[in-house]
Design a protein around this nucleic acid. Sequence first.
DNA 1: TAATTACAGAACATATAGTTCGGTATCTTA
DNA 2: TAAGATACCGAACTATATGTTCTGTAATTA
Lengths: 179, 179
Amino acid sequence: MDRRQKKTRKAIYGAFTRLLETKSYSSLTVQDIIDEADIGRSTFYAHFETKDELLRAMCTDIFDHVFSDEIMGEAHHDFSDRNSFRDHITHILYHLSEEQHSIRGIFSGECGEVFMRFFREYLYKVFESRLTDDGDIPREYRLDHAVSSFAETVRWWQSGHSGYTPDEISRFYFESVRI
Amino acid sequence: MDRRQKKTRKAIYGAFTRLLETKSYSSLTVQDIIDEADIGRSTFYAHFETKDELLRAMCTDIFDHVFSDEIMGEAHHDFSDRNSFRDHITHILYHLSEEQHSIRGIFSGECGEVFMRFFREYLYKVFESRLTDDGDIPREYRLDHAVSSFAETVRWWQSGHSGYTPDEISRFYFESVRI
DNA sequence: TAATTACAGAACATATAGTTCGGTATCTTA
DNA sequence: TAAGATACCGAACTATATGTTCTGTAATTA
C-alpha cells in the first residue's frame, strides 16, 4: 500500500477518535474530520464514501485485532493448556484493554450503538459454539442474553470503570449470568 | 388541549411509527413525516423542534404509561398481595405488550438506541431499590447488569419473538440472570 | 526519467433543516 | 353569536452539510 495512503488513513483515524472524545458522533461533520486530520476534502472521499463507512471500517479494524486469535481458535496468552470458555472470554477482555486508546470515545454517544452492533456480531460467533444445552429456555434467547450481557459488561467497563482488570470484569460477568 | 393540536399530534405520531416500520430512523426526513402525516411544514415545527425531540416525546409518552403504576408503587394487576420483585417485572412486561403497536418499529434500527436509553433510565429507578446486597461484585455493576439484561430481553422479545407471553419472558429473564 | 497515483483545494450541485409570514379555518369566550 | 385568539397551511427563504468534479502539484514506482 502506498505510503501516502497509509499516512492519510492514519490521520483520518486519529482525527476521528480524537474528535469523538469531545463531540458526539451525529454532531460530527465530515468537515470537522477533514480539518482535524488536515487533509483535502476530496481526499477524504477518496478513502471513505461516508462518515458511517469510516466508523464501520474502524470497528472492523479494531475487532479483527481483538478477535484475531479467537476466530482462529488459538490462544497466545497463557490459556493454551485448558481452553475453557471463561479463559477465552478473559482473553478477549485483555485484547480489548490493549485497544483502549481507540475505543475510548467510541463506546459513548450514538456511535456506541454501531460499535455494539459490530461487537455483538463477533461475539455471536464466539458464544454460539460454546453455549451449553440446558433447560427449557429457548437457545435463541440464551445466546442473545449471554452476548448482550457480555457486550454491555464491556461497555460498562470501558465507559467510566476502566480501573478494573480484565480478570475482575470476567469474574463479574460469570458470577452475574447463568450460562 | 385544543382539538386541532391533539389531531395533528396524533397524525404525527401515527406517521412516525408507520414510517419506522419500513424505513430507518436516520434515513427518515422531516419531510417524509410531514407528507405521511399530511400536515403543513410549519405545523410540524410548531409541535417539535427536531426529529429527535419527536422521538423523545414519543418515548416519554409510552414509558409514562408503561411505568405509571410502577413509579406510583401501586399495582392494578393481580399482584397486590405479594409485591415480589418478579411480579413487578412481569407487570411491566404486560404493560409493554399493550403498547406493541407503537413500539414495534421503534426497537429496531438506530432509534432503538434512543429508546433503549430512555427505557433504561426508567428501569434504573425500578431496579435500584430492589437490588439485594450481596457478594463482592460492585453494586454499580450489578445494577447495570440487571437493567441491561432486562432491557435487552425486552428488545429480543419485541423484535421477532413477540409470540412469547409476558410470564414466559419474565421466567427466561429470572432464570438467566443472578439477582 | 517517465508514467502512474495520490493529494490539495476551489467550485459546484443537491438535499435537508429550520424560519418567516400572510392568509384561512377552527376553537373559545364573553 | 359575534369577536378575538389560536392553530394550520404552504410558499419562499436562509443556512448548512453532503458529495462530486476538475486542475495543478507532489510523491511513488517501474
